[in-house]
Structure formats: C-alpha cells, structure tokens
Design a binder for these strands. Structure first.
Lengths: 223, 223
DNA sequence: CGGCATCCATTTTGATACTG
DNA sequence: CAGTATCAAAATGGATGCCG
C-alpha cells in the first residue's frame, strides 16, 4: 500500500504526489470556505464513496494538510479543517477556477450537479484586487438555505461559508436565480428588477460589486 | 470509452476533468518551456509508458490544449506545443510549484530523478514582479548541455528551453553544482567563488539576480 | 451520524513487445 | 523515432454491513 509517487525532485511533481489523486483537490476546494463534516463533504462530492473519502481524509491528515476538529458549540460535532499548509493551496485551486471559467465553462450539461458554494468560490476567483484597493467591507450572500460572506480587505478577499456578524451589505437570491446568473442567462441587475434578488446595505458598496467580481468572458476551446 | 467526469458545474471540477488525470499536468509542465518531441517527453517523465503518453497527447490535442507541430529547420521533426489555452495553464502549474517549494521540498530522496528544466521552472515560480518593475532583460542559463533563457519584461518573465539570440547576461553552471544549489547545499555566490559557475554580462543585472528570483524558505509540514 | 471493512465490476496504469 | 497492441497489476466506485 506504499503510495504512488512520480519520484521527481521537482516542486510541481512533489505537490502532485500529495494532491494529485482523484477527488483530493475537490476536497480541498470544499474546505477552503471553512470546516465541513463528513456527510457534507459526501453530499457535495457525488460519486465519491464513504470508503474513498475516509481514505483521502486520512491521507491528507497524515500529510499535514487537514486536521480533525470539533465544531464549536452548539454543534460539537466532528469536522475537518485545513491547516495552514492546506489553506495555502487556495491560490492553486483558484488558478484552476480562473482557467476553467475562461476555457471550460460552456453550457451546463443536464447531468451536472450544482452547488452555490462552488459558484461562490468562482466569485472569489474573479475578484479584482485593483478594484478593491483601499476597500474594507464584509458582504453577505444568502442563497436559499446557504449563507456565505466575503471579507474584503487590503486588496484581498476571503470567502467563508457562514453568516457574517455585521455585514456592510447583504445579497439575497433564490437558488434557481443564482444558477441562472452563474450560467450567464441573466444578471444580478435583472434579478433585482424582477424581484428574485434583493440587496440590503450601503448603496455605494453594492454599486461596486460588478467591478469587484468581474467575470471573464468565456473563450471556447478548440479554436 | 466515454471519459470519466466529476459531473459538476464548477470551474475547478471542469478543469480537473481536463487535466486532472495522472501525468497530464506534468506533460503541460514539460511543454511550458517550449515545444518538445515524443522521446524527450518520455525521457523527462520516467515511469510513463509510450502508450499512456500517446493517449494523453491525443486527449490534450482533442481538447485543444496542445497541438502537433513540426520543428523549424534544420530539425523538421514532429513535436508537440501548447495552444493558447494550454499555455494559460502556466499560472496553475506555477502556483503548484510555489506551494511545493514552500511545503514539499524536503531533502531529495535518492530514487528521485532531477532535470535542470524543472528547477528552471522553479526559478520562474519564485520570480518577483516587484523587483523586476521597469526591467527589460534577457538572461541565458547554460547547465551542462541544456540551455534556457529568461525574458524579463514589464514585471513578468518567460522561461524558454532554447538559447537566447542576444542575452544581456549568461550564467553557466555544471549540472552537479546546479543540483547542489537547488537542494540548498550551496549558493550561486559560492559556486562563482569556487569556479564551478561563471557569469558573463552586465554586472548590474547579475547583481539583481538573487532579488529577481527569491527562493522561499521551505516550511516543514506536519507541524 | 461518523466512520471502517469487505466484496466485486470496471477503469486506469505500467511494462513490454511489436510495427511502419 | 513515433507510436500501437497487449496484458497484468493497481486504483476506483458502488453496494452493503457493521460498530460506537
């Protein structure tokens, strides 16, 4: 059961030895927005079985990329969280997300699942540091039952899968509309007019949103 | 024979559907410094068989990430090159390289192979745009039989596996010394004193080198 | 709920032999 | 040299069943 390795003294190959197996980087993606429980991971990774998930978690824990924790009260239930090393895989995952948004996001296929969290990470991936220079704000997003918040500070952004304590603005959208926006079939502005989305908070901040998160126009491959 | 997919409407998952299979990203790594022939790819990817290499190349070509070309005269031999979409995977590979340099490059294991090209890509990964602001220069590196050159311009760098036409500086190192520098056992300065490395060209530019490519101090995982 | 263990069908891989 | 063809070993996935 010795683990497979590329046996290359190369930073990229060494990294792939650790996170290159199937499902591993998607597991990291799930944890980038905060600790998750076993069953939530399972629910967001359709096709992954309990056995393989347990194996991957154990491997990543052994390599020091994740850590078993207990959720704070009142939950008090076991969960998995990224270590500092694991969290620093964020730039790698976001680089992939940026590439994918540009080159791989053609029309959604019917069999494909969708989770709002994935799109929130996509939002983080198209964050524009320039447009956020000097800005400090917390923006909450509510999509159906899921609540996220983005912390913008010093030209960077964090995306967390929890409610904010004191958001400067809150965006509320129903799931179907959010998917439609993600697919590019409609826009936030249209959804606001139609009443399927609502915003609360500083108007100046809300007006900046489209510039803070500037979606790239997809380029078809095979050209 | 339909290809395996995560079936997620998510930019990261879609990207992994395309480049997440074993060897694929290392193949991209090889091509990032310029077109390569079948046998050279094979030689730099020990453990990969001809069949799998052919399959990967075909898949990537079908997905529009690489392209079959013919090397310019006098070579005139078939080779593989990245398309624009493929080349834009550079940031993803370099993000992994940066992570690996910090978190995964402990002592070289005896079984591990080493290629100077991998370390040259590592050099590119720790390029500092700030230190290169306003600088425009071409630096050639000669390690044993291999010649690379870095083109620095507008705070960016390109690394190419060919000689430069008119380098502003040239660094010549023998392979063993270069490996030793990569491992951190010695430094370029020491190698210059010892005579195992030599430099030619603008002294001002050569003095800037350590700042242009600033290696991160590795942090042990499992802490 | 949060896992681990087991069995089995299917894919993927790695290594080698072979061909134009 | 640039691949194809072939086959054995390993990884994956899906289903279950078990235990604390």
């Amino acid at each position: 059961m010795e683990q497979r390795t590329y046996n290359q003294y190369c930073a990229t190959a060494r990294t792939l030895d650790l996170i290159g197996e199937r499902w591993t980087l998607l597991l990291v993606r799930e944890l980038l927005t905060g600790p998750k429980r076993f069953r939530d991971l399972l629910a967001n990774l359709p096709g992954l079985g309990t056995g393989l998930l347990a194996a991957r978690l154990k491997h990543l824990e052994g390599q020091g990329l994740i850590r078993r924790t207990t959720l704070p009260p009142p939950a008090r239930t076991p969960a998995y969280d990224l270590t500092e090393a694991g969290r620093e895989l964020g730039p790698t995952v976001l680089a992939m997300a940026r590439w994918g948004m540009k080159w791989a996001m053609d029309n959604r296929r019917p069999a494909e699942t969708f989770r709002s969290g994935w799109a929130m990470l996509g939002l983080q991936a198209c964050f524009s540091p320039d447009a956020a220079a000097g800005l400090r704000a917390v923006i909450e997003f509510r999509i159906d039952e899921e609540t996220f918040h983005a912390r913008v500070h010093d030209g960077t952004v964090d995306m967390v899968h929890t409610p904010a304590q004191a958001p400067d603005a809150t965006v509320t959208i129903d799931g179907a509309t959010f998917l439609s926006i993600t697919e590019g079939h409609t826009t936030l502005a249209d959804a606001l007019s139609a009443g399927t989305a609502t915003t609360v908070g500083a108007p100046g901040l809300l007006r900046k949103l489209p510039r803070l998160f500037r979606q790239p126009s997809p380029v078809p491959r095979n050209g």
